[in-house]
Nucleic acid binder design. Structure first.
Length: 487
RNA sequence: GCCCCCAUCGUCUAGAGGCCUAGGACAUCAGCCUUUCAAGCUGAAGAUCAGGGGUCCGAAUCCCCUUGGGGGCACCA
């Protein structure tokens, strides 16, 4: 399955701007990109905007943004099919002249009615070819009506079409199961079939790597290449990515657009790594691969055939791994915008970079995504903590002894001059024994007083970052709460 | 309904006839570490390799059938 080395590798990603790109679309882009980079070929971006009616505002931008975010840089394009209309028309008319296509005057209404009837009779819905062999007289009459005809492909009635898929092997279709599909619509735009064949040829695409959903359109394309007397590219149909309900990924599956993952605080490196493993694998154990390693090892032979359901848990895990791999500086840089956006307005801006850095050093290994950073770190920034007073008693202490423990700790800490984790520990650890409390209970109590929660970064480090003044203030606040606690 | 594709733990996957008493990862559970959480480490559970027929000395791996799933069947891509 080595690509033909006589012709340079040229692949394309050809999305249509009828929606925002989801993980499936982007996985296709990634495989194309990896293939191109692996073989030192070209990765071409082409926007298939031939459906005027379904065009979605902002989709093109979302596609470009997604690719850029993931670092899938393209070598040519973006080409827009809407700007190449004359080429398709010319090809369509050429086909017409050579007898490979014909004009069809059937109205959409008639076609729709016909389809409904066929479905009702449990027949395969297919164009009945009414216009395929019109008598000259009839043609003239229809022409005079002023109806704008479409151009349909004259699909061979007999025989079969076989092509060799790089992933599936030989695939054969009987020609009589194929339709006389439309090449040029009455609005003057080409259909996908015509436009992609023409462009793939004109752009000298060597390999078409696209999702499995296109497999059954491929014989039509092969027939078109034959009619045009063009050499078809090699085809490879990639396994689909399915939603949790095992159905084709769509808007119905919620947060599947790539930009959504960006917003949720996933790192592009993690997403690339994760996506690469959806349908491709290096061996029986390697999970973490850098971009360079992916390029180095990527090959179509190791692309599987079975559709994959993406496993969000695993993506999260992997993102956590990548987050922890970041240097503190990089992590701060990545997390800062999220803090800035999500922290309450009451927190003074701009955030102090040094302080943020100290805080984030304690958060980094606890975050799976960037979006949870503000939540994990909020108590470092708030002046007053809101928490359920009962939390202070979660160590099964009564309010009185809890208050006593905090008071003693507070007094002890007043005397601490060097406010760092080591000093804090040597000041507080002995107190547990003096108070006859086990360390779990004692430190747990102080943790709630300091952070307002039972799960937080290590106590002494947290206190060191917060600073003496804020810690003592929080102890006071805790005492306040305990004093009003309904006994 | 017709056509095409696919079929290994819940999920992602390794496996290209003997290395498989089916390996890894996520998730789950347990233990260790530990001031909590997280991370880390160790271990457990989890797949009669969809089912049935062949071929072969030998099949998860090859062939056939069945079943299941997916995709396609537009003047959408």
């Amino acid at each position: 399955m080595q690509p033909e080395l006589k012709s340079p590798v040229r692949v394309r990603f050809a999305p249509s701007p009828t929606g925002y790109p989801h993980l499936g679309n982007i996985r296709t882009a990634l495989f194309n990109w990896l293939f191109a980079r692996h073989y030192g070929g070209k990765f071409i971006l082409r926007i298939e905007d031939t459906d005027v009616a379904r065009k979605v505002e902002g989709a093109v931008e979302a596609i470009l943004d997604s690719l850029q975010w993931l670092g899938l840089d393209w070598d040519e394009g973006p080409y827009f099919q809407s700007q190449r209309l004359p080429i398709y028309r010319e090809t369509g008319h050429k086909l017409l002249e050579e007898g490979h296509a014909y004009l069809c005057y059937c109205s959409p209404e008639r076609l729709e009615a016909m389809r409904q009837e066929q479905i009702k009779r449990k027949q395969p819905p297919k164009y009945d070819r009414r216009c395929r062999d019109l008598a000259q007289q009839e043609k003239t009459r229809l022409q005079a009506t002023g109806i704008t005809p479409v151009i349909r492909f004259t699909t061979p009635l007999e025989g079969e079409t076989t092509f060799h898929d790089l992933i599936r092997g030989p695939v054969t279709f009987k020609n009589d199961t194929l339709d006389d599909f439309v090449l040029l619509k009455s609005d003057g735009y080409p259909t996908y079939h015509l436009a992609s064949v023409v462009d793939d040829h004109m752009m000298a695409i060597s390999h078409v790597l696209r999702a499995d959903e296109w497999l059954s359109s491929t014989p039509r394309h092969v027939l078109l290449y034959q009619a045009l007397n063009w050499q078809p590219p090699q085809f490879a149909h990639l396994p689909m990515i399915l939603g949790p309900d095992r159905a084709k990924l769509s808007k119905r599956h919620g947060a599947t657009t790539v930009t959504e993952y960006q917003k949720q605080g996933y790192l592009p490196e993690a997403v690339v790594n994760f996506l690469a493993l959806l349908g491709w694998s290096l061996d029986d154990r390697t999970e973490l691969l850098s971009r360079e390693e992916l390029i180095k090892h990527f090959s179509l032979e190791r692309v599987g055939k079975t559709p994959a359901i993406f496993n969000k848990d695993k993506l999260e895990w992997m993102n956590g791994v990548y987050l922890r791999k970041l240097s503190l500086g990089e992590f701060v840089q990545q997390a800062l915008p999220f803090l800035d956006r999500e922290l309450p307005k009451s927190v003074e801006r701009p955030l102090d970079k040094t302080y943020v850095s100290q805080v984030l050093s304690l958060i980094q290994e606890r975050a799976k995504t960037l979006v949870e950073v503000p939540q994990l770190a909020s108590f470092f920034f708030l002046d007053e903590l809101q928490y359920d007073t009962g939390l202070l008693l979660s160590g099964k202490l009564d309010a009185k002894s809890a208050a006593n423990a905090i008071t003693i700790a507070s007094q002890k800490l007043e005397e601490v001059m060097t406010w760092d984790a080591t000093a804090l520990e040597s000041a507080l650890r002995p107190l547990a024994a003096e108070l006859n409390l086990d360390t779990g209970k004692f430190f747990g109590l102080l943790r709630v007083a300091i952070t307002g929660r039972t799960a937080a970064p290590p106590l002494f480090q947290t206190m060191a970052v917060l600073g003496k003044e804020r810690c003592l203030k929080r102890f006071n606040a805790a005492l306040q709460l305990l004093s009003t606690y309904s006994n």
